[in-house]
Design a protein around this nucleic acid. Structure first.
Length: 887
RNA sequence: GCCCAGGUGGUGGAACGGUAGACACAGGGGACUUAAAAUCCCCCGGGGCAACCCAUGCGGGUUCGAUUCCCGCCCUGGGCACCA
């Protein structure tokens, strides 16, 4: 038994014992209340874990351990998001096969997680690339297909030329591939989609009841991008040849322009601001708009074709680049505004996107910034049709969120919101359109032209029809091959494997197997259900088991998955709910995002306007000063740990150097859970100090420990300091329980430190000849060990055993707070004069406001501040404060 | 530009609208020690001899009382970004 924190002497021993006792195995027990704590499904990379990853795993572990001690049946599993691009790319780079590679990497992750004492139940370990798992991923695919929620269609897909595969919209970040950063191109390809758009409204509505970070919910709302508006039709016309005609009447010359409808050609526009329709002075079609070919007059063909060709050549990123001047070209055709019967020019411009709404807009340069900019450049008419409520804003484009319609025919004088509904009704009554809700959300592109994913379990018949692979034949096994590099053609490498490709359809005719695989997000969209029943080879999961465990009570991971994984998983869960396969509408009741951990990172070339640190002491210099230093000067900045930056601290190193419990305490205590922290050896030292003090305290007291303190305390009369210790004990129980529950791990640790300090203070003056004294100390020490157990489990178990307790703290009962000890007999009342603290005095709790006021007004330290003043008012907050208002 | 989250000592950070700086780290002083480590005790936002005064990014407001609530700015981090 070490008398100080010597992790090398005991931590490994406890991990071994936990394993031998199979301590963390979850057993089904329908009679106990469950707790499902889950960390995001990681892809085990070759770099292994860094101490940064532990900011995710340690807090979840603390919560799960506490829940277990509180008597909950805890499910705390871990698995490997093994399929997908990162694994495959890494395997290609290493010229190996992803399957054994991922298994090896997963072993490292597992070993490292065990090393810091994470209480995972490895009996439920999952690997999404194992046939036992992806069999059911395929099964869910087929379910979606049968429900009409999976379809195969041609689409200008995001194509990453480096990874040689298509990407989902969510996987394109600022026009770049989210994995490799290569500029994404558009390619027309036949792809598989999941119809997530059919669930857009429910995905939006059900966010309301989730206990998730507000920022993440907001990001999902933005991504779904609901907007209410009106979609309606505009007839295409052309200017009559020879027009305009002028005509003389009695007192003026009138110019008439004749327009001819283009035989029934029309297009629809979507607008959220139908109230501005009288200000629509032109229309714009996206360059890809299918109508363009048939409306452009012959004399403009060449010029228009040239513009469209240019627009197509430009990458998505260039097209969307901020600050870019909007380009466009007049089509030569006109469109008739159904409200005004005016003919306005139709332009073609790439600031209108084919993928949203109808790919065509009515442009209102008077009230829309983008249209305004375009109109100025191309000298198009700008009209004001909304008068703001206050007449202050008269600059273009007009602010028009709230106001009254002007120059809008019969609708003039009506307020914007009122006009929106009336004009919507008018459109519907004319039969030219309808009110409509649009979503920015697109269908989820799931197919990948890559090897390392679950095969899509369908075949294509000669007739071009799609058949599902019979359920009994699932899974469609991914063939084990030596060469699986992606191709240039947009075809999966599986297409080059005849044994895989060539099959027969249900009627025995030759057919072709689908060779695309599913993107990795398919696996992570349902793995949390498989943990409920991981070894079932009859079904994806037993409904009773899933109903027992779901939803996840606490889901913890990084904020970077705000839209992709978290949206897809919600979608699948809703589909499964509709099918009656699960009883929860939402998979993750509570979501928390941990903060990052940054490490000092050396670099050579400073960026302008960054704070530059030189040397170990971190002297800060300016960018200019940095320029004058020699070229090989090394600077430091804080960066996320990554292998390529060479700043990784591994759990192995940290555990070896400081110990697992010190590492745990450090990461929990350093800052709030969701805050970014900066790795500091010095501060890990602080955690070691704390654990040492716990050892010292318990070591000093061991001989005097009273195992039967409960009975002894039942009928004893305590001294003031003994009562004080019991109060500190029960206050600590309540505070630390609440803090862990609410993810305030940093204050949980600081409260634990305070509690330990109180116990140590008591011990200093304790009279160990008194039974009462030994008993309250025993209660405090035992409680301290239990409260410490989820946070520093090795230390707790080590001391626990030395005190003669059987078993592990994990199996012990979480201490219960006795509210009688939360009530203080004596309180400190603060006296303020005009809101400034001037004095304080101790008083029995529950002192009447009158008495408190009396004492305060007579207080010697208060009197000088009242001199020459009249007391106007006295505010008394019982047991807290007396504020005297005087002037 | 829009949406989130923040801005508190030398540092990390605490604070149901009620004593700003808990708990720590670093630093300083002292005890023990031949010495060092460890441990223990004391000090530690700024100014002032003191009584006190100033201080939670800036400016207003609400309140008996504001780090906390409201309005307007400034800065930092993260996300989204021509979505009509």
């Amino acid at each position: 038994m070490p008398s100080r924190y010597e992790p090398l002497e005991f931590e490994a021993k406890w991990r071994k014992r936990w394993k031998a006792a199979d301590l963390f195995r979850t057993r089904e027990d329908p009679h106990r209340q469950k707790f499902y704590g889950l960390d995001f499904f990681p892809y085990p990379s070759g770099a292994g874990l860094s101490v940064g990853h532990l900011r995710n795993y340690i807090p979840t572990d603390v919560l799960c351990r506490m829940k277990h001690m509180q008597g909950r049946n805890v499910l705390h599993p871990m698995g490997w998001d093994a399929f997908g691009l990162p694994a495959e790319n890494e395997a290609i780079a290493k010229k190996s096969h992803p399957a054994p590679m991922v298994r090896e990497y997963a072993e490292t992750y597992k070993r490292q997680e065990d090393l810091v004492g994470i209480s995972y139940d490895w009996h439920r370990e999952l690997n999404s690339s194992s046939p036992e798992f992806y069999r059911w991923t395929q099964w869910i695919f087929q379910l979606l297909y049968r429900k009409g929620l999976a379809y195969h269609g041609e689409y200008p897909a995001n194509w990453c030329p480096k990874d040689k595969t298509v990407l989902a919209n969510e996987e394109v970040e600022g026009g770049l591939c989210w994995r490799c950063g290569t500029r994404v191109e558009k390619r027309m390809l036949k792809q598989w989609f999941f119809k997530i758009t059919a669930y857009a409204q429910r995905l939006l509505d059900d966010l309301e009841d989730l206990d998730w970070p507000e920022g993440i919910k907001q990001m999902q709302r933005n991504w779904i991008g609901r907007s209410e508006g009106v979609e309606f039709e505009w007839q295409v016309s052309r200017m009559e040849l020879g027009a305009p005609k002028t005509e003389h009447n009695e007192n003026a010359i009138v110019t008439h322009t004749e327009y001819m409808p283009v035989d029934g050609r029309s297009f629809r526009v979507f607008t959220t601001r139908i109230d501005t329709v009288y200000g629509a002075t032109f229309c714009v079609l996206a360059p890809e708009h299918p109508l363009i070919d048939s409306i452009v007059p012959v004399h403009r063909h060449a010029e228009v074709a040239d513009y469209i060709e240019n627009a197509k050549r430009m990458s998505e990123q260039d097209r969307l680049a901020t600050g870019r001047v909007k380009t466009g070209i007049f089509s030569g055709a006109f469109a008739k505004n159904p409200f005004t019967n005016e003919h306005v020019p139709i332009w073609i411009a790439d600031y209108v996107l084919m993928g949203y709404g109808t790919g065509a807009i009515m442009a209102v340069p008077g009230h829309d910034e983008r249209d305004h900019e375009f109109a100025l450049k191309n000298e198009l008419e700008i009209r004001q049709v909304i008068a703001p409520e206050s007449m202050t804003a008269v600059e273009l484009p007009f602010e028009s969120e709230a106001g009254v319609l002007v120059s809008s025919g019969d609708f003039s004088g009506i307020a914007c919101d009122e006009a929106q509904s009336r004009m919507g009704e008018w459109v519907e009554s004319q039969g030219i359109g309808e009110r409509k809700i649009n979503y920015r959300l697109r269908d989820w592109l799931i197919s990948r032209q890559r090897y390392w994913g679950s095969p899509i379990p369908v075949i294509h018949t000669e007739a071009g029809e799609i058949e599902l692979v019979p359920e009994a034949e699932l899974p469609v096994l991914l063939p084990d091959v030596d060469h699986y590099e992606p191709t240039e053609t947009g075809e999966s490498p599986l297409a080059a494997i005849p044994e895989f490709l060539n099959v027969t359809d249900s009627k025995g005719r030759p057919a072709r197997r689908e060779t695309d695989t599913m993107g990795g997000f398919a696996c992570s969209s349902w793995y949390f259900l498989r943990f409920a029943d991981p070894h079932n080879d009859e079904k994806a999961w037993d409904k009773k088991k899933a109903d027992y465990w779901m939803p996840v009570d606490c889901y913890v991971g990084g904020a970077e998955h705000a839209v992709m994984h978290l949206l897809y998983a919600r979608f699948w869960t809703k589909v499964l709910y509709d099918e009656g396969l699960v009883s929860c509408k939402e998979p993750f009741a509570v979501l928390r995002n941990q903060g990052m951990l940054l490490a000092p990172t050396p670099f050579r070339e400073p960026r302008s306007n960054e704070t530059i640190k030189v040397g170990e002491e971190g002297i800060q210099i300016t960018y200019e000063e940095a320029q004058s230093l020699p070229e090989d000067q090394v600077f430091w900045r804080w960066e996320k740990m990554s292998k390529s930056k060479g700043n990784v601290v591994t759990p192995d190193e940290a555990v070896d150097k400081y110990g697992a419990d010190a590492l745990r305490v450090y990461e929990l205590f350093e800052a709030p859970f969701s805050a970014t922290i900066q790795w500091s050896d010095e501060r890990v030292g602080g955690a070691i100090n704390f654990l040492n003090r716990v050892f010292k305290l318990t070591d000093d007291f061991r001989e005097n420990f009273e195992p039967n303190w409960r009975a002894a305390l039942r009928s004893s009369s305590l001294s003031e300091s003994e009562l004080g210790l019991r109060q500190a004990t029960h206050f600590a129980i309540r505070k630390i329980t609440d803090d862990i529950e609410t993810f305030a791990f940093n204050t949980a640790v600081s409260s634990l430190m305070e509690f330990r300090n109180s116990v140590a203070d008591f011990a200093k003056h304790a009279d160990n000849d008194r039974m009462e004294s030994r008993s309250v100390m025993s209660e405090a020490v035992e409680t301290l060990l239990l409260l410490l157990a989820p946070i520093a489990p090795h230390t707790s178990d080590e001391i626990w055993e030395s005190y003669g307790f059987d078993g592990f703290t994990y199996q012990a009962e979480w201490p219960e707070c006795d509210p009688r000890f939360l009530v203080k007999q004596t309180v400190t009342l603060v006296v303020q004069v005009n809101g400034k603290m001037r004095a304080s005095f101790d008083a029995p709790a529950g002192l009447s406001p009158e008495d408190a006021e009396g004492i305060a007004l007579e207080h010697e330290r208060v009197l000088p501040f009242l001199e020459g003043k009249t007391v106007r008012k006295v505010i008394v907050v019982p047991d807290k404060i007396v504020n005297i208002v005087a002037n």
